[in-house]
Each structure stands twice: as structure tokens, then as C-alpha cells.
Design a protein around this nucleic acid. Structure first.
Lengths: 111, 111
DNA sequence: GCTTTATTGATAATGCACTTGCAATAGCAA
DNA sequence: TTGCTATTGCAAGTGCATTATCAATAAAGC
């Protein structure tokens, strides 16, 4: 019950991975484990619009995500354009930000 | 039935605005109008994770959004850090990107 | 003024992600 | 092995945004 694939996984993906790995695994069990691990700080949540949330290991460096429109997978991408907070107009206090690149991953862009 | 408040509105917000403006307005009507106007290209959709979608006028310049965690409202912010696409690692083809700043709007940060 | 058509509102239904209740199973100590 | 506790799977249930249904009302045409 550990996710080391290097990219954020959705509950469905976790379910399928778990089922492939010999043990039968059910969706409620996935959600129960995710909830427990998130509360324990081991995982963090990555929310996407209109889709199920993804989960990745907590304590990672600040980074952003790449969403492949073809396969629906989400990837971590390192780095961050520094000037982001300066975009906020006068009076807006920025606590954090969220950047997602959308396109095709290597697997899907070179068929 | 036109939204010129200068920021993206959720169906709920549109409903409340419409109801305040003399006419009784119902949620199905809001969704019907939004669907028609979106298909006609007059509106574009702004999806947020875990929340109802927002709608804003189509044909605006490239811009991003600011989400106030206190009041839940979404605002337009001009500009864009140019170097965004360069963040993608080798092999990832970026079609577009999505940047959201999260924090407190002027109304909420100075009570 | 009266019939036909379109639009609206109220309500119920759908789809989806996620959660819960509960019986069955696994793990483990004695 | 026996009995107890914790975890699991299954199936049903929640909550929410969105959509369909359909009668009623408003607008348009005659």
C-alpha cells in the first residue's frame, strides 16, 4: 500500500495497480487507506477540475503538474516560474498557486 | 441575461443575481442559458477543482484567475508568466496551461 | 380574442465521486 | 484450534452539480 510510481495517482489507478499485484483490492479499501494516509500526512491531494482527485507522496518539493489529455494521466514536473505571485493585482494576497500544463505526454505524442 | 460583472460567475451566483434583479429565475433556466451561450461561443467555461464551474465572456485575452478562499469568488487577473511552457520536460507537448492564484481578495483581506 | 409555439419553474432524475453499514474474512494471542 | 479484534469486500447510501420531464405561463401568429 505504497505509491512510488513517481506521479500522482487517482483512486481508480491505485485500485487497478493493487488488483494487478496479486491481492484483490476494492475501492472502499483504497479510499479508506487514502484517507488515513492523507490525515497522517503521508499523502497530499491533487485536485483536478471535473475529475477524481489524485494522490501523491507528501513532503515533496514545490512542483507542478502536467495533464495528458490523451491518456488522462497526471505527471509531476519540476520547477516553477518565479514571478507568479507578482501577477496578483494590488490588494490580493496570494497564499499559494496552482499551475497545470495540459497537452500530450511522450507516450501519447509519439505513437 | 448578460454577465458583465468582470469576473467569472458560477451558476449559483448567476441565479442569485438574476433573482435579485426583479425577475424570478430558476436554476434550470440558468443552465439552459449557459449551455446555449457557451455553444454559441459567447461564454467560456472555467473549471475549478471540487467546485461548480464558472462562466465568463468568451473572446477575452489570455489571462488567469484568482480564487479567494474566504468568499469563494473567482477573479480575473491579467498577464501571464511567459516561461511557463518551458517547464515541461523533454517530450511533453504543451497545448495550454492553467494558472490559479489562491489567497484572499481585497474585500476579505481587509475586514 | 383565441389558438399555437416557445420558454419557464418546480420537481424529480441522472451521473459521478466518495462514504458507510454490516457481514465475512484475516491476523493473531492464548 | 478457539476466540477476539481489526480489516476487507460488497452493496447500498450521500452529497452535489447538472439535466430531463412536464405542466403552466408567456409570447407570437392568426
Amino acid at each position: 500500500m505504497f505509491e512510488r510510481t513517481g506521479r500522482p495517482l487517482s483512486p481508480q489507478e491505485i485500485l487497478e495497480l493493487g488488483q494487478n499485484q496479486a491481492d484483490g483490492l476494492s475501492l472502499p479499501t483504497v479510499y479508506r487507506a487514502l484517507k488515513a494516509m492523507t490525515e497522517a500526512g503521508e499523502l497530499t491531494t491533487v485536485d483536478l477540475p471535473g475529475q477524481a482527485a489524485r494522490y501523491e507522496l507528501g513532503g515533496l518539493h514545490h512542483h507542478h503538474h502536467f495533464l495528458c489529455e490523451d491518456c488522462g494521466r497526471l505527471f509531476d514536473i519540476p520547477g516553477c516560474p518565479g514571478a507568479v505571485h507578482a501577477l496578483a493585482p494590488e490588494g490580493y494576497q496570494v497564499a499559494r498557486h496552482d499551475l497545470t500544463l495540459i497537452g500530450s505526454c511522450p507516450d501519447c505524442s509519439t505513437p
